[in-house]
């Protein structure tokens, strides 16, 4: 479980994240949603230590991550898998090399065990037998799946996904969402997903935090969100008139 308590962040004079607290539960897909520029990616970057925090606490199973010594921080990070928005796969390495990289670095597995683990991860993300492809040879959806395979290769305890659906068609988005959710449940991972894709929110949002102008504005789950009375959240959810019409039609039925 990861808990953030009263975290805040400023860039120069600009307050980007303002006193945010939330508990990300183990074995659930926890979503941080909000408009572009609302501070959700900044929250995630603070959580993984890519941005320093200006105040508050980030607790990984009780350990306050920002004040841990470098070595202990690295130990926590070894338990983190992260799916970046652009994939962040190593261009000069094949998929197999990308996925086995954390295994080479942190485990004493034999070559055969590593190969089995790579194949297992590729199977999980439906990229069986694509071991020797380079990231440049993959489509957007395949890149995300390959990055997900790398993120889970070292059995992470915590999985972070930064806008996993951005740039993908609705069908591929659903595949990625389902993958994230099934991996979360299967391996009991604490998963944190940053998104503004409403379909993902409803489909996989088991624990949702809505951020508005850097502040925590609403907490609940993906199903509750459609019945919210919070005006800012309503604006966000039903930003498209089409979505509103669909929702009203479903309610009438």
């Amino acid at each position: 479980m990861i808990e953030i308590k009263n975290i805040s962040k400023t860039f120069g004079d600009r307050l980007v994240v303002d006193d945010v607290s939330f508990a990300f539960e183990q074995g659930k897909t926890n979503l941080i949603i909000g408009e572009s520029g609302s501070g959700k990616t900044t929250i995630m970057k603070m959580m993984v230590g890519l941005h320093e925090i200006n105040g508050g606490e980030i607790l990984y199973d009780g350990k306050n991550f920002p004040i841990l010594p470098v070595k202990d921080k690295q130990e926590v990070r070894k338990q983190i898998g992260m799916l970046f928005q652009g994939g962040a796969l190593f261009d000069s390495q094949t998929l197999e090399e990308n996925i086995r990289f954390p295994l080479d670095m942190f485990t004493s597995m034999s070559e055969e065990e590593k190969r089995d683990r790579v194949n297992f991860c590729l199977d999980k993300v439906q990229l069986t037998n694509r071991n020797n492809l380079y990231p440049g040879e993959l489509s957007g959806g395949m890149k995300k799946r390959a990055a997900l395979a790398r993120a889970i290769s070292n059995n992470p305890k915590y999985l972070f996904c930064d806008e996993p659906n951005s740039g993908l068609d609705p069908k591929t988005s659903i595949v990625i969402d389902n993958l994230i959710q099934s991996l979360t449940h299967e391996f009991n991972i604490t998963t944190i997903v940053i998104t503004h894709d409403m379909n993902s929110v409803v489909e996989i949002g088991e624990n949702v935090l809505y951020i508005y102008k850097g502040k925590p504005w609403w907490k609940g789950n993906g199903k509750d969100i459609l019945h919210t009375t919070n005006p800012e959240l309503l604006d966000f959810v039903f930003a498209s008139g089409f979505m509103k019409e669909v929702f009203q039609a479903v309610n009438k039925k």
């Binding site: 928005q85 652009g86 962040a88």
Partner: peptide, 11 residues
């Protein structure tokens, strides 16, 4: 392309 961030997050 965030590859360095990826390395950092892996520890």
């Amino acid at each position: 392309t965030e590859q360095i961030d990826a390395l950092e997050i892996m520890g």
